[in-house]
C-alpha cells in the first residue's frame, strides 16, 4: 500500500505585519512517489505553501498558522525545520542565495556535517551524489564560478545529501537558461521514477514538466482552486485559460471545434507526441 507522504489539512497562514492571509484553508494529500506540480500566478502563495512542508512555516517565519501539515504521519508542528531536513529536501529559487560553502564538494557535504555524519560516510555520499548528478567536473570548483544551472544542481545535490524521501523545489528553473531548465527537470523526473522520490515543485513553465507530473495543484490568492490529475485538471473551469500549457490548450480548442474529448475522455495529451498519437 502506498503511504501518504504529505498531508496538508486545512492550512492557513498570515505573515506577521501582513493584512491578508497568504494561505487560506488549504487541504490535499500527496502519496509517496508522486510528482506534484504547484501552479499559480505570482503572489498566489506557492512559496508559502512549500515552506509549510519543511517547517520553515511556522518555525522560522513568524505569523498566524492554522491547520496541520503531516510528513509521513508526523506533524511539522512537533519537529523543527532542522530535524525535518532528513524527511524533506528543499531547493530555493535563487541558487546563489542558498549556497554557503567554498566548493561544490563542501556544499554537498554541508547537511551531512550538520548531522555529525562520520567523515568517511560523508566522502562516499558526496561522491555518490556527484556521480548521480554528473558534477565530477565541478567538484572542486567554487559555486560562485559555475553556471546558474550547475549552481542549482549543486543545491539539489545538497538537498539530497541526507537522502530525504521528499524533495520540494520552489521555482528552481526561474533563473536558468532553457537548456539548464530542461536538464534540471529531466533530473527531477529521474529522481522520481528511478529513485522513488516524492517531488513537489512550484513551476511557472508548465509545458516543460507537465508530462512528468501525476497531479497539479493550482493556487489563487492563497486558495487551492484545483487539485487533480494532470490529464483532467485542465478541463476544470477553475483553471485559468491564460495559464493553460500549449498542447492541452490546443487540444481543448480543437475539442471545442470538432468534439474530440467525447471520444477520448481522460486522454488529454500533454506532449506533441501524445497529441499526434491521439489525433491519429
Amino acid at each position: 500500500m502506498v503511504e501518504t507522504a504529505v498531508k496538508i489539512d486545512n492550512v492557513s497562514f498570515k505573515y506577521r505585519n501582513s493584512d491578508s492571509f497568504a494561505l487560506r484553508r488549504i487541504s490535499f494529500e500527496v502519496a509517496e512517489g508522486e510528482f506534484i506540480l504547484l501552479a499559480g500566478f505570482s503572489g498566489s502563495g506557492k512559496s508559502t505553501l512549500l515552506k509549510c512542508l519543511n517547517g520553515l512555516i511556522p518555525h522560522f517565519h513568524a505569523g498566524s498558522f492554522g491547520g496541520n501539515v503531516e510528513i509521513f504521519g508526523k506533524s511539522t508542528l512537533e519537529s523543527e525545520t532542522t530535524q525535518l531536513a532528513k524527511q524533506v529536501g528543499f531547493v530555493f529559487q535563487n541558487p546563489e542565495n542558498q549556497i554557503s560553502n567554498l566548493t561544490v564538494e563542501r556544499e554537498i557535504a554541508f547537511p551531512l556535517e550538520n548531522f555529525g555524519v562520520p567523515k568517511n560516510e560523508i566522502i562516499s555520499r558526496v561522491d555518490e551524489l556527484i556521480a548521480l548528478l554528473n558534477l565530477e567536473e565541478i567538484k572542486y570548483k567554487s559555486p560562485y564560478s559555475i553556471s546558474g544551472g550547475e549552481q542549482q544542481l549543486t543545491a539539489i545535490a545538497s538537498a539530497l545529501a541526507l537522502n530525504p524521501p521528499i524533495l520540494v523545489l520552489d521555482e528552481v528553473t526561474a533563473h536558468l537558461s532553457p537548456r539548464s531548465a530542461v536538464r534540471i527537470l529531466n533530473l527531477l523526473n529521474e529522481l522520481n521514477t528511478k529513485h522513488k522520490k516524492t517531488i513537489i515543485i512550484a513551476e511557472h513553465r508548465l509545458d516543460r514538466c507537465l508530462h512528468f507530473a501525476n497531479k497539479l495543484a493550482f493556487l489563487e490568492k492563497g486558495q487551492l482552486k484545483v487539485f487533480d490529475d494532470v490529464r483532467t485538471v485542465f478541463q476544470n473551469k477553475e483553471f485559468p485559460e491564460n495559464m493553460l500549457p500549449k498542447i492541452p490548450s490546443l487540444f481543448l480548442k480543437l475539442d471545442k471545434e470538432i468534439g474530440l474529448l467525447d471520444e477520448k475522455a481522460n486522454e488529454l495529451p500533454l506532449t506533441v507526441e501524445e497529441l499526434v498519437a491521439t489525433l491519429k
Binding site: 522560522f60 530535524q83 530555493f92 542558498q98 549556497i99 554541508f110 556535517e113 550538520n114 562520520p118 567523515k119
Partner: peptide, 22 residues
C-alpha cells in the same frame, strides 16, 4: 534571510557533535 532559510532547511546545528569534511 534567504541564506538563513537555506541553511535551516539543511539541518543547521542539528547536532552538537558536528563533523567536518576537511
Amino acid at each position: 534571510w534567504q541564506l538563513a532559510e537555506a541553511i535551516e532547511s539543511r539541518g543547521w546545528n542539528a547536532t552538537k557533535n558536528r563533523t567536518y569534511l576537511y
